[in-house]
Design a protein around this nucleic acid. Structure first.
Lengths: 395, 395
DNA sequence: GCAAAAAGATGAAACGTTTCGCTTTCGTCT
DNA sequence: AGACGAAAGCGAAACGTTTCATCTTTTTGC
């Protein structure tokens, strides 16, 4: 909260606005020997109608605009004047007009965050630490969701860019590299931008992502080590980089251990049943695909489910069928850390460092906004953590 | 846009003349402790590309500023000129500077939305329809979360108010009526504001809430009709109006049916075990309190759980203990509609009209922002819907 | 105690719009 | 053809800041 600001800052004033019945005229405080004595009260009805401006502060305190502005922005003034300004500011309930300020400075001290949805804990958690990081540096973050909608995704980005924010954090889905480039360059200078969770192929940009490949690799590897050879996976829409990478990690693990991969992604309906199921990252997908797996002629002996909602769906379906995860069937879920701790036997879960993601995204964005020129595309690939709860018992 | 690659981007040259190691970064909003003599001002980072303004459009098209502005804001111009302007705009890649516009018009066409968290589906859903409603009227909505934090809640509101938005939608928690009033009046005119989901006692304001009392009343009534007489409830923090009302509904139902209410809210630890448990609206609360109930000497034969996360927690705990909800114990949850449909036997669930809430909130806010003076505090109390899945079988 | 340097204060010029009050132009009707 | 009202175009003055380039005051070093 107090950002090291040693002196009064109008934005923080808390209780001042008990607007006392304005006595009708300015009574300049102990006017020493300033040249221009204040006489003209601005406007009589100022109280309700108009917000006071820096000019009013100037008149009230007998100091110049420039001085007030300098002080308000952290500059130095004589002690005596500092006092006068503080007094005027509180008396008038002055608050800086951010539009005017932004017009001059070309900066708004705000950051736009664009997410596919606001209904999943994963993003909520990222947002939380992101916001905190930015806030500590004096920025405010505004979130908007495009609700998985392509047009909205673009629109939100454009609106943000148009003039409202100093930087953008984006979890992209449909938008193309070309569009992103257009957006990024639609201002005078290149708009600072950081991608989180997902990357867009062809768009070079700072990004914070998970090492998805190794996340599922590790998860599957663990299942293999527990003796499983017939392992299924539920992934998300493959146009999302994250989902795709997770699938690749799965395949690679199987390959590396010399296990044949069912019928491959496209071989659906072949003689062999497909152990790679594509969901939509939602609860229902997890629920449905889990049942689909269980209904196979030769069901997998272990399952990997690759995001929060689908994990919840799968867990629900399992309970319902009286399938005990981790016992009747090997299981690794994603993200649902609270769940894995609570359920018994505990689930193996891949935990993503959401807090760290948000923080890193914020840090990089701050650097870019400060004009630091880092080696070009700064891609941070964070490690996920595998809560290993596999027991000795095995298939 | 023609700014693709028609010409070489001058930014590359921006290292220009003096390439002195400008150590400074753009300072954050406030200077750090003032200290050393002043050094090179941050103007070093001057951007070369300059965005085109309405003036450029004027020059390019040979028309006056006023005309351009009028046209851009929907006014009429001659066909010939309309064409000229359009041409100029696309050629120059002109985009209106919203800060300048807002400075003049005193409106930003944005709405701030303040929520306790962005990690729960309930708010996500409200936000989605709210955003849509506002967007259709030309407004953009920015969301921020205060993460259940009191100071943050206030700070977010202040920042929004300061000059950035034309209206506010708020799901309040800690903030007091006095503070809200202060915030609402901290501008020239009264800031349009709508509360959702929760009200703040003493603060008269348009609000969209659920008929919480009757929601739990109905839920409990249904359990009673199914033959239950020993019914527990898990409610949220009682300083949240919503949670409190839900508790009252529970009590009243019991009263109306002449059932004695356990030991009452404060009688914890008395001879009789307390059938009203207070959680924190999160997954763990539901999980823990469910177990707590089951571990009682005389466990309730039915349970009402009053929000999404706690319902999920309770369901999880139940599965784990092999308690079949709706069979071994009467059960009514909240919000988890997807779950209730999927689980078997299906759960009884209270569904809140989140979409409608968002929409109504948007509509009222729009009216207020348009200056309509409605009869003072417009309080809309929406009915929730009880998915009744109680079977004939009973305790 | 004096000059020089540092620090502080100031007026004015922006920033990119909208808008007010006029002037010009354009159809139209006798 | 002339006149006239309506429509369209125009210059200039805001909106509330920040920030130059100058002045003025204070501090400092000797």
């Amino acid at each position: 909260m107090s950002d090291g600001n040693t002196h009064f800052s109008p934005e923080q004033q808390s209780e001042t606005s008990e607007k006392q019945p304005f006595s009708g005229h300015f009574h300049a405080p102990t006017h020493p020997k300033r040249k221009k004595p204040v006489e003209t009260p601005p406007t009589a009805v100022r109280q309700v109608i108009t917000l006071s401006t820096i000019k009013d502060v100037s008149k009230f305190s007998g100091l110049s605009l420039a001085t007030i502005s300098k002080y308000l922005n952290g500059g130095n003034v004589r002690d005596e004047n500092r006092q006068r300004i503080d007094e005027a500011v509180t008396a008038l309930g002055y608050r800086v007009n951010r539009n005017a300020r932004s017009l001059k400075t070309n900066r708004t001290m705000t950051v736009g965050v664009v997410m596919p949805t606001l209904s999943v804990p994963f993003f909520g958690s990222v947002l939380s630490s992101l916001d905190q990081t930015l806030r500590e540096a004096g920025y405010t973050s505004f979130v908007c969701s495009y609700d998985f909608d392509r047009d909205l995704e673009l629109e939100k980005l454009r609106v943000l860019c148009n003039n409202n924010v100093d930087g953008i954090v984006l979890a992209a889905q449909h938008v193309s590299a070309r569009e992103l480039n257009e957006i990024r360059n639609s201002r005078g200078s290149e708009m600072p931008m950081v991608l989180v969770d997902r990357t867009i192929s062809g768009f070079v940009c700072d990004s914070i992502v998970i090492d998805n490949l190794n996340a599922t690799y590790g998860a599957v590897e663990q299942l293999i080590n527990a003796g499983h050879r017939h392992i299924g996976i539920i992934v998300g829409p493959l146009d999302i980089s994250t989902a795709n990478e997770r699938m690749v990690g799965y395949r690679r693990a199987l390959e590396d251990y010399g296990i044949e991969i069912s019928s491959g992604l496209h071989g659906k309906g072949g003689a062999q049943e497909d152990l790679i199921q594509i969901g939509r990252y939602d609860f229902e997908s997890g629920y449905r695909q889990f049942n689909h797996f269980m209904d196979m002629k030769k069901p997998p002996t272990a399952l990997c489910v690759t995001n929060y909602d689908m994990t919840m769906g799968a867990v629900t379906a399992a309970h319902e069928r009286n399938v005990i995860l981790g016992k009747d069937i090997g299981f690794v879920g994603f993200d649902a850390v609270d769940l894995c701790r609570i359920v018994s036997p505990p689930l193996s879960i891949v935990e993503q460092p959401t807090q760290l993601m948000g923080q890193k995204a914020g840090e990089i964005l701050l650097k870019r906004m400060a004009g630091e020129t880092l080696p070009h595309p700064q891609v941070i690939r964070l490690k996920s953590y595998l809560h290993n709860r596999i027991y000795q018992e095995q298939k």
